[in-house]
Design a protein around this nucleic acid. Sequence first.
DNA 1: AACGAAACCTGCGCGC
DNA 2: TGCGCGCAGGTTTCGT
Length: 269
Amino acid sequence: MPELPEVRTVAKSLKNKILNKTLTDIIIRYDKIIEKDSLNINLIIGQKIKDIFTYGKYIIFSIGDLYLISHLRMEGKYFIKEINEEFNKHEHIIFTLDNEISLRYHDTRKFGRIVLVKDYLNYKAIKKLGLEPFNKNINSKYILDKIKNKNITIKEILLDQSIITGLGNIYANEVLFASKINPYKLGKEITKIDAKNIIDNSISILNKAIIEGGTTIKSYTSSLGVIGNFQNFLNVHKREGEKCNICSTPIKKERIAGRSTYYCPNCQK
DNA sequence: AACGAAACCTGCGCGC
DNA sequence: TGCGCGCAGGTTTCGT
C-alpha cells in the first residue's frame, strides 16, 4: 500500500494503537529489511514511541531520541497481533511493545526497508525528497524550475520523488487524467497551466483518497488500517479498454519507463 | 549528466 | 493439473 494516502492511513492507524508504548523486544527474521547504514536497532529497546508521522511515502517513528524510518515499497504492511501468535512466513521484523503487543512488519516481496537514525531530516533518502503536493511552498514555478530542461516524460517526472513526493503509479495516472495531460508529454513541454493543474489535482485526488482510506487493489488480506475505498473512484488506472468517464473513448494501457500507464487518448492530447 | 534496464522478491492469474 | 510467462501500489544500482 505504498502511495501517500495509504502511507498516511497506516501511520494514523499505528498512532492510534501504539503511541506512548515502550519497545521491549525486537526480533529480526530477515535482516535485509534493515538498511546497511542503520544504527543498531536494539538501541531503541527500552525507549518509548513518542510520535508517528509521515513524509512522502515514509513512515517515521520518533522513539526515545532516535527515529525509525520505514518505507513499505510495494507490499510492506504492519499488523498488530497477540504476543504468542505464530509467525507468518512473511513477518520479517517483530516489535514487542510493553511486553504485551506484537507489532509485525510483513512484506511478501521483501522490498521494504527500515533504518534507525539520529536525525531523520539528514538521512540521505529523506533529504533528497521534493515537496509534498500539500506543502504551502509548492507552486508552478517550483515544478517548472525542476523540469524545464527535462527530456523525460511527465509520467516519469510525477514518479520522481525528488521533484514531487507522494505520488506513485496509481495517483500519477489519475492526476494526469484529471489535468488532461498526455503522459508522454516531456518535462520541457509542460506549461505553467499544466504545472498548476498538476498541483491542484494532486491535492484534490490525494485528499479524496486519504478520506477514503487509500486504494486497495489487492484485497486478499487486510492490514492495519488499510481497507481503502478509493479504487471505486479511479478514472483510468486498471481500466484498460473501459470507456472514459468523460468522453467514452476506450482507456489505453501502455508502458512508460517500465510502469503501466493508463490514459484517455482523447482527453489527454 | 542522463537515460534505460536490471535488480531486489514473491505470488497470482492467464493461456496453453 | 501443471508450467511458463507477465504482471504488481517502489526505489536503487548498474551500464552505456
